[in-house]
């Protein structure tokens, strides 16, 4: 289907670069940590349900961070929860990616001005790759965020290092 379709009818040899092969393998099966915090988690669950299927992109929810590639931070991160988010991020093995879903985890959301217990954006504790705006974002918006992440992975280089955790 697609990449492998015509290749095997002539001969069984596939020619590509290691970078392309590894990047293609990584982006086609991104397993996510089931980490839903607040209202955006319901839209994430609706995206994994049958109407807006997440599974056709290869994304499966895993219960443990030690077996997953991507963490979708969906919902408001409070000060009490921020330390636990950092610990979960550090438990994930490399290469790992972060999608920040919803305006509460992008920048604090509707609670930016008077929230004394709200962390104004999850990028104050972990580095973020893709931001998906909305309150809550529609399932189609989350799928677009996932496609942008896949594009980012497609042009990654395995020799150059990414930014380290600040």
């Amino acid at each position: 289907m697609g990449l492998l379709d015509k290749e095997f009818s002539d001969n069984n040899i596939l020619i590509t670069t290691t970078e392309n092969l590894f990047n293609w393998a990584r982006l086609s099966s991104l397993w996510q940590v089931g980490f839903g915090l607040a209202c955006c988690a319901i839209e994430m669950m609706a995206t994994s349900a049958s109407h807006y299927d997440f599974d056709r992109f290869g994304v499966i929810p895993r219960p443990s961070p030690r077996q997953s590639d991507v963490i979708i931070v969906s919902g408001t991160v409070t000060l009490k929860m921020a330390l636990r988010v950092k610990r979960l991020y550090e438990q994930m093995p490399d290469p790992k990616y972060v999608i920040s879903m919803g305006s509460c985890s992008n920048c604090g959301g509707p609670y930016w001005e008077h929230g004394y217990h709200v962390l104004k954006g999850v990028d104050r504790v972990i580095p973020v790759d893709v931001y998906v705006p909305g309150c809550p974002p529609r399932p189609e918006a989350l799928l677009e965020g996932l496609l942008k992440l896949q594009e980012k992975i497609r042009y990654e280089s395995i020799t150059k290092k990414n930014n380290e955790i600040v």
Binding site: T76, T78, K80, G115
Partner: peptide, 22 residues
């Protein structure tokens, strides 16, 4: 307390219609 978003403090500074989205 891991999702305490200070709803009651926001009510004291927003006007009556502005509280409805919260």
């Amino acid at each position: 307390g891991y999702l305490h978003r200070c709803f009651e403090k926001h009510c004291e500074v927003m006007t009556y219609p502005q509280v409805i989205p919260y």
